[in-house]
Design a protein around this nucleic acid. Sequence first.
DNA 1: GTACCTTTGTGAACCAATGCACAAAGTCAC
DNA 2: GTGACTTTGTGCATTGGTTCACAAAGGTAC
Lengths: 236, 236
Amino acid sequence: MARLPLYLRALNGLAERGIATVSSEDLAVGAGVNSAKLRKDLSHLGSYGTRGVGYDVDYLIYQISRELGLTQDWAVAIVGVGNLGRALANYGGFVSRGFRVASLLDADAEVVGTGIAGLVVEHIDSLESVIRERAVSIVVIATPAAAAQEVCNRVTAAGITSILNFAPVVLTVPDGVDVRKVDLSIELQILAFHEQRKVTGGVDETAAAAADQWPGTVGMSERNQGASAPPRGGRT
Amino acid sequence: MARLPLYLRALNGLAERGIATVSSEDLAVGAGVNSAKLRKDLSHLGSYGTRGVGYDVDYLIYQISRELGLTQDWAVAIVGVGNLGRALANYGGFVSRGFRVASLLDADAEVVGTGIAGLVVEHIDSLESVIRERAVSIVVIATPAAAAQEVCNRVTAAGITSILNFAPVVLTVPDGVDVRKVDLSIELQILAFHEQRKVTGGVDETAAAAADQWPGTVGMSERNQGASAPPRGGRT
DNA sequence: GTACCTTTGTGAACCAATGCACAAAGTCAC
DNA sequence: GTGACTTTGTGCATTGGTTCACAAAGGTAC
Ligand SMILES: NC(=O)c1ccc[n+]([C@@H]2O[C@H](COP(=O)([O-])OP(=O)(O)OC[C@H]3O[C@@H](n4cnc5c(N)ncnc54)[C@H](O)[C@@H]3O)[C@@H](O)[C@H]2O)c1
Ligand SMILES: NC(=O)c1ccc[n+]([C@@H]2O[C@H](COP(=O)([O-])OP(=O)(O)OC[C@H]3O[C@@H](n4cnc5c(N)ncnc54)[C@H](O)[C@@H]3O)[C@@H](O)[C@H]2O)c1
């Protein structure tokens, strides 16, 4: 379940503050979810709670870590060492959670060879050998959008089945490969959407009126001009 | 709907390639969703398609942009100019989508005053005045976790109702405030979870065996050994 | 003008996830 | 030891979202 990391984060916070036991209710608040949902999620791992008392924090941390596979170290390679790649490389939050940055790779000769976060940036040509020799199992793609699919093809061909993609494109991958994407622009757009709703009290007031005046080239007048870029190829 | 930005991204890609019309089927592939879902989503905005032909790309871009509130400019302030804050400030993808970075703010005297992406980092003390004077409507929090709630309190008090949070904490906010969070560690943990499943063919093989040997303090002897580590500490 | 073909928009079935509510289980105080 | 209290684990109804499938709508060709 995708919420386990959230619980883990909350539990770690409790452990740091020296709290030994927590009820589903309190933990749910800390993780920002409903307590019934939390209990149901945890019950899928087994019966690790004690009725009348709650859950033992350390023990639950261990069980969730095990379930998530965090009891082992994962080698991660970051491809594309630009603004974002550098930030990721310097981020301490990965290492502390069992993710080890095993390699930084880039195509730019200016960047290759420079040192970042204790690593030397390697050339993208060595991608396959790095993956093989350092047992990399997760690849982070932080290249420009145009290069992402190409990088993706190479890493999947090299046997990688877990990819975290920051480039704003939908990656096409073989079956069995997991891709998770993070698109910050999309997050902002969703916020803007809600923000707009708050201001106008719904798009139906000012905007709907403006909806009809389409400033675009032709509108869809006579025959959708260039339109119908023959769907289905040039099948007509 | 949270998928509109995805469609918009795919549409922009089509527009750049000079494609004037697209069917729901093709667009769905480009956005990585089911075509029926896409049609249903779009029908919520109104009837903007043409049966037998599809959707006019430019017109649909306009309609979705309007729905998302992207026809106006949004002023964004980034609080916390560390590794991540700098990457965000340098990212061109925001500006091109109608988001303007109006201010960079930080608490560190070393950082305040330095120039990044054409802006000068300002001191966090001026947070409220910056928000007010530059009509900031969205705040991005990229501070360490410990400072996030405090920053959040201040910006909500200043009237902000849209926050994008990168710090790994659950923010508590007044009603009516939207918070979206991005936690990269969580993304990696989810990948690790699936990766582990692939390798072991389910946690029930090797791991379940290991489940009972809890290395924690007490170990739980007598009843239901592994399970139920004496909640409430080493209370025995 | 007519017949055919493509694609939309949507009713209806389906599925998964959510939340409620409560009995069972265990703790704590005395 | 006993009884009251707390909290888990889960059956069940509900909700929301996804997918199927198809009639209606419009375009294209001749
Ligand atoms: N910076 C951000 O805050 C941010 C936010 C959202 C999304 N993104 C996305 O993340 C990606 C990276 O952003 P960025 O700001 O770091 O861009 P950037 O241009 O600063 O960095 C991209 C890096 O990738 C390298 N690269 C290009 N082609 C490559 C290839 N084929 N193989 C390996 N490396 C290659 C470049 O040399 C460069 O160092 C982009 O797709 C961007 O849209 C970035
Ligand atoms: N760097 C990453 O790739 C990454 C990935 C995931 C999550 N995060 C999270 O994003 C946040 C920032 O990460 P980072 O790597 O940029 O950290 P960082 O330490 O490099 O930067 C944090 C910045 O915030 C400033 N700051 C501290 N307290 C402040 C306050 N009260 N007001 C304003 N500014 C303040 C600091 O001066 C510093 O410049 C952290 O919470 C981190 O967990 C970062």
